[in-house]
């Protein structure tokens, strides 16, 4: 088990965002959490990353309890996130943005190899190398955010609403890259998405979240066929 979340509770003041969910991810899996806006998806990712504190519960990563670790310590332990709306550093260049991902790891990874690999994965970033990130388009920023997370060779990649604000063609491209990373490099990925079809199509398993609780779970292919899921989340029902 790479990641195990037990009895996760998240609250903002008195408002409960996530109430007591359990889920787990195996090494090499690609798992989706789908659900409507406000279901608590982003809160779950942020609390795995350590940006949002848990009110209750436990997060176990690579057999170690990381519940009390700060975000930067979890990042160094091998969890990286592609945040909602990319959150690249606007005034830093593309290259500098990538370099922010290697603190504490400079001795263990080969920077030249990593940069070359990422620029092959996202060729547009090579062209934009010296440009401030704020001059990039939304799609390019999203690619930069993925590259920035990948530079450290994480063992778990968290991807938050990567499709948001992207045109459909780019959404497919980005999901193809994620699938390819999972297939070819065995990268474990947890995606949270409103775009349920796109994420279910590349996932092995999925959880369906509704107002802070898991209401369905199973193989992604089965969920895609489930008439109830189809009606509520895929918009293809009667």
């Amino acid at each position: 088990m790479l990641l195990e979340v037990k009895n996760m509770h998240i609250a903002y003041g008195d408002i409960r965002a996530v109430s007591g969910i359990d889920f787990s991810i195996e090494q090499g899996e690609l798992v989706s959490i789908i659900g409507a806006n406000g279901a608590g998806k982003t809160s779950i990712l942020n609390s795995i990353m350590g940006i949002v504190p848990l009110k209750n519960g436990k997060i176990v990563f690579e057999n170690e309890d990381i519940t009390s670790l700060a975000a930067h310590q979890r990042a160094r332990a091998g969890i990286r996130m592609v945040p909602e709306r990319a959150r690249v550093f606007p005034r830093l260049t593309v290259y500098e943005n990538l370099m922010t991902g290697v603190y504490g790891l400079r001795k263990t990874i080969n920077l030249d190899v990593q940069i070359a690999w990422l620029y092959d994965l996202f060729p547009i970033l090579r062209e934009r190398n010296d440009q401030p990130a704020e001059t990039l388009s939304g799609g390019e920023q999203q690619q930069l955010a993925i590259a920035r997370a990948l530079i450290s060779n994480p063992s778990l990649l968290l991807v938050d609403e990567v499709s948001m604000g992207l045109m459909p063609k780019l959404v497919d491209q980005v999901f193809d890259v994620l699938k390819q990373l999972n297939d070819q490099r065995g990268l474990t990925i947890l995606i949270v998405e409103q775009n349920a079809i796109a994420s279910l199509e590349i996932s092995h398993r999925a959880y369906v979240l509704e107002t802070g609780a898991i209401v369905h779970q199973g193989m992604a292919s089965a969920l895609l066929e489930d008439p109830k899921i189809k009606e509520v989340y895929l918009g293809t029902g009667a």
């Binding site: 350590g50 940006i51 975000a71 996130m81 945040p83 959150r87 603190y103």
Partner: peptide, 18 residues
Amino acid sequence: LACFALREEESAAASMGI
């Protein structure tokens, strides 16, 4: 560079290991 990253987006910087 770490200071600049914190200035721009603190939580993103923290989740990069800074």
